[in-house]
Structure formats: structure tokens, C-alpha cells
């Protein structure tokens, strides 16, 4: 099975607005999720343009953008895809 691609935006805006915390995602995943995801940092995904910075941090999961990302939100998305 192809692994789920989790790209955490570590552009300056996302990083300052909270991506620093998302970097610890790995520590919160169960074994099954861990085996099936590929977590990486991404340069600015371009989502923070215009007034949208307040919805940072952004995370891209298999091409879908998650705004106001939190570890809980990401885990939910991953589990949804593993069903």
C-alpha cells in the first residue's frame, strides 16, 4: 500500500503560528499509523497569502490542505484514510 504523505508546512508563517508543535506528530501516532505515513517538512505551501495567515499552520495530506492544523486534526485525517 502506498504510504500517506503528510507534509507539514514549515514556511515562516506556518512555523511561527504553530507548525513548531506539529513537528512532534510522530510521538503521537500509533504503530499502525506510523507504518503507513511519510512525514516531512515542506517549504511554504503558499496557503498563507493574503489575509489567510491567521489560518496557519497548514498541512498537506495526500494533496488535501488542512487549515488551522493541530496534531489531533492530522491524526483524525490519517485514521480516516487508513480505514
Amino acid at each position: 500500500m502506498k504510504k500517506i504523505d503528510v507534509k507539514i508546512c514549515v514556511g515562516t508563517t506556518c512555523y511561527v503560528m504553530g507548525a513548531f508543535q506539529l513537528q512532534h506528530l510522530e510521538d503521537f501516532l500509533d504503530k499502525k499509523s506510523l507504518e503507513n505515513v511519510n512525514i516531512s517538512g515542506a517549504p511554504c505551501l503558499g496557503c498563507c497569502q493574503d489575509k489567510n495567515y491567521e489560518n496557519a499552520p497548514f498541512v498537506e495530506i495526500d494533496g488535501d490542505i488542512i487549515a488551522n492544523a493541530t496534531i489531533v486534526k492530522i491524526i483524525k485525517e490519517i485514521e480516516e484514510r487508513l480505514k
Binding site: 507539514i8 514549515v10 513548531f20 508543535q21 513537528q23 516531512s40 517538512g41 515542506a42
Partner: peptide, 10 residues
């Protein structure tokens, strides 16, 4: 502080 950088961006 903001928080230490852990992930490297690809």
C-alpha cells in the same frame, strides 16, 4: 521562544 526546529524541509 518559538520552539526548536526539528523537521527539515525537503
Amino acid at each position: 521562544s518559538i520552539g526548536l526546529m526539528k523537521l527539515k524541509s525537503s
